[in-house]
């Protein structure tokens, strides 16, 4: 069994979303996570706050405001899951609700000792 990281980008524009849409998105997301937990493949996950971010850079530890990317390129959250291989990890990602909102999932294997 390997661990894979799902990095989520894009999706629903939270600043413009209506309460109804937020609730719907939350319910979809929760259902998906619960499903993964039930199957025993879910390790952990968090959503990331979009504002109040910084990038610290170089030997001088230069501090920059937020990631200077388009909002749809910002990582909005991540989860870690268990899978046999990349193919299975891709399969697991397919029901992710982010696809209903025009977002994407980057799938990366966690390097282990």
């Amino acid at each position: 069994m390997k661990d894979y990281m799902f990095l989520f980008r894009g999706g629903l524009d939270f600043t413009k979303a209506s309460p109804e849409q937020l609730q719907q998105a939350m319910a979809n997301w929760k259902n998906w996570v619960e499903e993964l937990k039930k199957e025993g493949v879910y390790n952990s996950g968090e959503r990331l706050v979009r504002n109040d971010a910084a990038v610290v850079k170089g030997s001088a530890r230069q501090v920059l405001d937020g990631p200077y990317t388009e909002s749809k390129e910002i990582v909005g959250g991540y989860i870690s899951i268990k899978a046999e291989n990349l193919k299975q990890a891709i399969e697991i990602s397919k029901d992710c609700p982010i696809f209903n909102y025009d977002g994407n999932v980057e799938i990366r294997e966690v390097a282990k000792m």
Binding site: L22, W29, V33, I79
Partner: peptide, 9 residues
């Protein structure tokens, strides 16, 4: 938004 982020996981 905070509810959504917290409750989702």
């Amino acid at each position: 938004l905070q509810a959504m982020s917290t409750w989702s996981y």
